[in-house]
Amino acid sequence: MSRSDVPPLYLLLIPLGFVIWSIAFVTLYAANAIGCAFGWDMGAQRMVLIALALGFLALSTLASFRIWRFWTGRARHQPAPAASLAQIGTYTALSALAASLGTFVPGLAVSLCI
């Protein structure tokens, strides 16, 4: 029962960026629904949503950067497929960052509860 050179956990590099995007998506959607149901003040609700979106964008940027650093650094010296997984992970993390910008930025400008 030897340990793998590239543990199965490395597979999670691939979905990581989009897992953050999914959590952000669901959180923002839920915050909007809760805000409307509880009748929050519109200005306050928009601030909450923008703050949440910015927080997730920062997280997504950080994740992309770390995976990219890993790909171009440490993964190069590990056995296959560490570099492949890190490369795909970098691509997906960057896609997820772009998807976060694409989904949240236009949305936050429009009406909240109608």
């Binding site: 979905p15 909007n32 949503l49 795909i88 989904t103 936050l108 009406s111 909240l112 509860c113």
Partner: peptide
């Protein structure tokens, strides 16, 4: 992978006429 995740984030596009807030 992107397609897989994004496709989960658009289920409400079958529900654009049920009266969900414009932001969502």
């Amino acid at each position: 992978v992107a397609l897989a995740f994004l496709s989960f984030g658009l289920w409400v596009h079958h529900m654009f006429t049920v009266g969900i807030p414009h932001l969502a």
